[in-house]
Design a protein around this nucleic acid. Structure first.
Lengths: 165, 165
DNA sequence: ATGAAAATATCGACCCCTAAAGTATCAAAA
DNA sequence: TTTTGATACTTTAGGGGTCGATATTTTCAT
């Protein structure tokens, strides 16, 4: 029901060979995993709710900030550029899921908020989304998931050091 | 030198709160890590070699298959759609890094290959690329990287089961 | 052989994303 | 006050990605 024209099977990790540095293989495996899961989520969101992942992500941010968020805040939290947020917000406004309110404090800024319909709609999607994730990770036991969580924290720290320079 | 208009700091993981299912937080953390690293690689490739990640990936596939690959093979291995491969290949052909040869066996198909210049160019970039990865993972010790590698194998298996249905 | 079904690749419409430049507002110093 | 500089957002140009439709060739059952 997902994945049709996207082959999705053969694996980006194909790129890795024994001659490659172990770290490179590690990275390619991680990338393959992430893409696999992300593509799956993406196509289920589209198939079952007719929404894109970026739109879902934006709504997800708003749901946790009922007071509204400025465009710049959204940009930071979603780790995308401002111009990108403009476009996604436009779409969601057009669908009636989100509104741009003028900020009372700063006439340059908006406060973006979920509409009541947006909130309702998001709750339904978020429930399904969480179930899908559960399912995708269900092949790992509790201990494994805990370990992975910890290791990713270490990786994030490691990468952030390099990245921040 | 990287990351300018992209905030990149505040973290996608912001989306996760204590009230979320642990699996969801795990997934969001993984996504944040991957994006962090991928964006870093992406901008360094651009800054230092004026090439995009997808183009680099395609060349990477070809480098390991000197006999050439059909468009469909590339599509499978890169986990993207055929239409997408058409576009990226066009670009690389335009830059003289790659050629489309008619397949002798099947008149519908091409064999895409690296040109000599493409091969030369790729080796340089691949060396740098590998160094960057090493650097990004350098904050983890050998044991941690090994563990992570194993856990990702488990995750891949788990996710593939769901994904394949 | 032939004719239908499957496979290979391209195209067009549309969304996501970035970098760079532009507009408007704010804040603070001269 | 005026200017200067930073902030908040939009716009534009261009690459990346999907899907669905199309054209061509191959395959295979009849």
């Amino acid at each position: 029901m997902s994945k049709k024209s996207v082959p999705a099977a053969s694996d980006t990790e194909t790129r890795a060979t024994s001659e490659h540095a172990p770290d490179l293989r590690l990275w390619l495996r991680m990338l393959a995993c992430t893409n696999l899961i992300e593509n799956h989520i993406r196509s289920r969101l589209r198939a079952e709710f007719d929404i894109t992942l970026p739109r879902f992500d934006l709504m997800s941010q708003l749901e946790r900030s009922p007071q509204g968020l400025k465009m710049g805040e959204l940009s930071k939290r979603m780790m995308v550029t401002g111009g990108n947020v403009t476009g996604i917000t436009d779409q969601l406004v057009g669908e009636g899921l989100v509104i741009r309110e003028d900020s009372p404090k700063d006439r340059r800024a908006y406060l973006v908020k979920l509409t009541p319909e947006g909130r309702r709609s998001f709750r339904k999607m978020a429930d399904a989304h969480e179930k899908w994730i559960l399912e995708l990770f269900s092949g790992m036991d509790e201990a494994q998931r805990g370990q992975l969580y910890g290791l990713l924290a270490a990786l994030k720290t490691s990468a952030s050091r390099t990245t921040a320079k």
